[in-house]
């Protein structure tokens, strides 16, 4: 034992310890336990939700997504920082808005990225689509909006017959041709790849492709698995597996007011978790909190042999 340790432990009876053996045994125990759990229960691996799947099972939903990207009602189209200058998802508490301060750092022109550019890329294969795109882009914003409204109303009465989406005729200009092409593109399975194209072969960033389905399609799928926010979805796994139980405090906040009703729930929850974390970190210096262990005398149990041995000294 070093001089310093001898000083630290002066007056205490020392016992033999073998920390390396302890670690080796603990490792074997944990490894055995984990192998057993893995053998018995496996682990979840639900496949991703794709535009192809949505186009095949809920074609009207995909077309509605595209129309709302064009008319600006889609949540990403009108999100705000870091994607664009929209206002739909900007959170602030009074004058405090880190989101607005950070600015547009992942710029994303929703109309072009999600709808028009993917269509333009395949327009050479389909002259009718090329003409429709040209007509759409030549039209005034007011004309485009009127087409979009008309198509959206018609879409509400659409039916799926024999695997095809039948949208009633409407005064929607070139949109029926564009939307049919969009649906075909998705059904063929190349929509996400086209959205994500960056002009290079290598690709590791899926921000754009992931954002396409973030609205109704994804929420519907998650709801089917009970993964939504009000169901504590933040800490759950798909299937019946244990999830991120350690996020319980953060997830709890979203279930209670004022977070539940706040227009800036994430900012408020983030600020609250930061403050609570700081308190947790500083427990050794906070009177009252640091005295809890003395008042809840579990330590009497932990060191009971020590107290018993030295009672009469």
């Amino acid at each position: 034992m070093s001089e310093r340790s001898s000083r630290q432990y002066r007056g205490y009876r020392m016992v033999e310890a073998d920390l390396v053996k302890e670690l080796a045994v603990a490792f074997l125990v944990v490894l055995g336990l984990v192998l057993l759990l893995a053998l018995l229960f496996s682990s979840p691996d639900e496949p991703t939700l794709t535009a192809q799947q949505v186009a095949l099972t809920h074609p009207a939903e995909l077309e509605a997504t595209a129309i709302h990207i064009l008319d600006g009602k889609n949540a990403i189209a009108n999100y705000g920082p870091p994607y664009n200058h929209g206002t739909g998802s900007v959170q602030s508490l009074g004058p405090i808005s880190p989101q607005a301060w950070a600015g547009v750092t992942v710029p994303l022109d929703a109309k072009s990225v999600f709808v028009l550019t993917p269509l333009r890329r395949v327009s050479a294969l389909d002259p009718a689509l090329g003409q429709a795109l040209a007509a759409f882009q030549a039209a005034s914003p007011a004309q485009q909006a009127s087409w979009e409204n008309a198509y959206q109303s018609a879409l509400d009465h659409a039916r799926v017959v024999g695997g095809r989406l039948l949208v009633p005729a409407s005064a929607s200009g070139p949109l029926p041709v564009m939307m049919q092409a969009y649906l075909d593109l998705a059904r063929g399975g190349t929509l996400e790849a086209s959205i994500n194209l960056n002009g290079h072969v290598y690709q590791t960033d899926f921000t754009r492709a992931l954002l396409l389905l973030q609205g109704a399609p994804l929420t519907r799928t998650a709801a089917g698995q009970e993964l939504l926010g009000p169901e504590w979805g933040q800490m759950k796994e798909p299937g019946n597996y244990p999830g991120a139980v350690w996020l319980w405090f953060y997830t709890l906040l979203y279930q209670i007011p004022p977070f539940l009703t706040s227009p800036a729930p994430d900012l408020l929850a983030g600020a609250t978790v930061s403050v609570v974390t700081l308190i947790f970190l500083l427990i050794p210096w906070i009177p009252g909190l640091r005295d809890i262990p003395r008042k809840v005398p579990l330590y009497r149990l932990i060191w009971r042999d020590h107290y018993a041995r030295h009672k009469r000294k």
């Binding site: 993964l227 504590w232 800490m235 019946n240």
Partner: peptide
Amino acid sequence: MFPLTSNAPLDFFNMTASDLAIVL
């Protein structure tokens, strides 16, 4: 599958059965 029950929230605190089992 982790065979505790479904992922449906329990009445108690909306927790899933597997999460509650871990805490207990």
